[in-house]
């Protein structure tokens, strides 16, 4: 019996010791990590608008070139030069969330760029959803009436994109995320 208590006492002390280390590290790094994530997001927005930057001038270029418009709790990132509009999208994929940013032209209709920032799909199959080569097939396509990701198409209309071979569910999920986000954001944008 005494041995069991000793084991439990050891486990509790070990838990306190390791938790202290982790909480200490969290305290030291938390703000810095948040700043890194914010800077990385700004870099992605600049890349979405094809704006070049260096690590030292990210904030300066961002402030000079991008206007943040907050409408009904949604932020739109508008290019001061082209008028192109970027906003975030997110939703459920097959294995986890898929999120990123999409840039549309100033008419809020044609896709200029899509960047997937987070995904947990199957590497080599659904994971292709984050690859530049696949996302480039969306460029120039229309979000109206809706973007359609279709299988085995011979010819593609202006609102249609090929699905990822062997990853139909990821393709369907991505289509739903883009269309749902677009319809919500389009209403907000039109109401401004």
């Amino acid at each position: 019996m005494r041995k069991y208590f000793e084991t439990i006492r050891f486990v509790v002390i070990l838990g306190l010791f390791t938790s202290t280390i982790l909480l200490g590290m969290e305290y030291i790094t938390n703000k810095k990590i948040e700043a890194v994530i914010a800077a990385r997001f700004k870099q992605s927005v600049l890349e979405a608008h094809s704006l070049s930057y260096t690590q030292n001038n990210v904030n300066d270029i961002y402030e000079a070139e991008i206007t943040e418009l907050d409408l009904e709790d949604v932020t739109f990132y508008v290019s001061n030069t082209t008028g192109n509009i970027t906003f975030e999208f997110s939703g459920g994929g097959v294995w986890g969330p898929i999120s990123g940013i999409i840039t549309l032209d100033s008419n809020f209709e044609l896709i200029v760029n899509i960047i997937v920032l987070v995904q947990e799909e199957t590497p080599g199959l659904g994971g292709i959803v984050a690859e530049d080569q696949y996302l480039e097939t969306f460029v120039g396509k229309s979000m109206l009436p809706s973007i359609d990701i279709i299988k085995d198409a011979i010819t593609l209309e202006n609102n249609q994109v090929d699905s990822i071979t062997g990853a139909t569910k990821t393709s369907d999920a991505f289509e739903t995320i883009l269309n749902t986000t677009y319809s919500t954001y389009k209403t907000i944008w039109d109401n401004q």
Binding site: F10, L14, G15, M25, E26, T29, K32, V36
Partner: peptide, 24 residues
């Protein structure tokens, strides 16, 4: 609980390294 103790201690330091790299 020898092996479990190793794992807990090692995991703690690895997470600390991960946080340090992500921050700096």
């Amino acid at each position: 609980v020898r092996m479990v103790t190793y794992m807990v201690v090692i995991s703690t330091y690895v997470i600390a390294v991960q946080m340090f790299l992500e921050a700096f």
